[in-house]
Design a protein around this nucleic acid. Structure first.
Ligand SMILES: [Zn+2]
Ligand SMILES: [Zn+2]
Ligand SMILES: [Zn+2]
Ligand SMILES: [Zn+2]
Lengths: 130, 130
DNA sequence: CTCAAATATGTTATATTATAACAAACGTTA
DNA sequence: TAACGTTTGTTATAATATAACATATTTGAG
């Protein structure tokens, strides 16, 4: 089990960087940013990322292999995530839309599969890049 | 531009393997499978994969870094894709549901972004693994 | 047909992303 | 304290993907 409250030292360092970032961060760019803080190896980053994802503090943008802080309260422990991604400036915005989430959560594939989780990524041009 | 009809030799070889496969294939497993046919380098695989994706013949399952043949006619040139993915046996099934597709295609984020494309991945246990 | 452009191929090298494996330290709590 | 789970540190390596350059093949305009 993962306790909701306390983050370990490395987890806190990694989360801080991701939360401060304006856009999605890649694992190795996080690594380069924390070498001054005594974190030297990819494992240390990936372990922190894994735990933070489990806790729902961050999400992985699968199409970019990058990580963003969770800005929503709806996506409890990352069971239902949706993002809009600008194909020009790389901006990522977490979509927190109750209707969308409800619609997808109750969607059932006719082949009899019961879903536990979904991830949705929209692509386009953001307001600025349009 | 990509012409719809003819596939090049390497593209055809790669597509054949993906179409014959029961599940998603990874780039390097495709590579190992075609070395007898004179394809030796990852570049050759990735180039074929890129073109096949552009043509809508295959899709990339982002959460698995793997590729499946398109079984649908709805997802024209991969603008609107959805998959169900079994977390136990790795099975991937393309979801072709007109209502879902329409719902998501017309979904507009209130922050003013106009979407060109989406990809949706559902996770759970398939009928067999349930 | 002919030549130029576009597309596809082959090849070597390298970049990027992620995990394995092992040892030590730390924090509970029984 | 002893035992357990979790976190850390570290070295090595696996897996995924692209860069760069040379050549070949196909296509289509003139
Ligand atoms: Zn979230
Ligand atoms: Zn943008
Ligand atoms: Zn398809
Ligand atoms: Zn299954």
């Amino acid at each position: 089990m993962v306790q909701a409250q306390t983050l370990s030292r490395n987890q806190q360092i990694v989360l801080d960087i991701i939360e401060k970032a304006k856009g999605p961060l890649k694992a190795y760019s996080i690594l380069f940013n924390v070498q001054k803080k005594g974190i030297n190896a990819p494992q240390q980053i990936y372990r922190a990322l894994d735990k933070l994802i489990e806790m729902g503090k961050i999400h992985k943008i699968e199409s970019k292999n990058a990580f963003v802080a969770c800005r929503s309260s709806d996506c409890e422990i990352s069971k239902a995530t949706a993002f809009s991604i600008c194909e020009s400036c790389e901006m990522v915005d977490e979509i927190s839309d109750a209707k969308l989430s409800k619609y997808l959560s109750s969607f059932n594939h006719r082949k009899g599969m019961k879903f536990k989780r979904f991830n949705l990524e929209f692509f386009g041009l953001c307001k600025k890049c349009k």
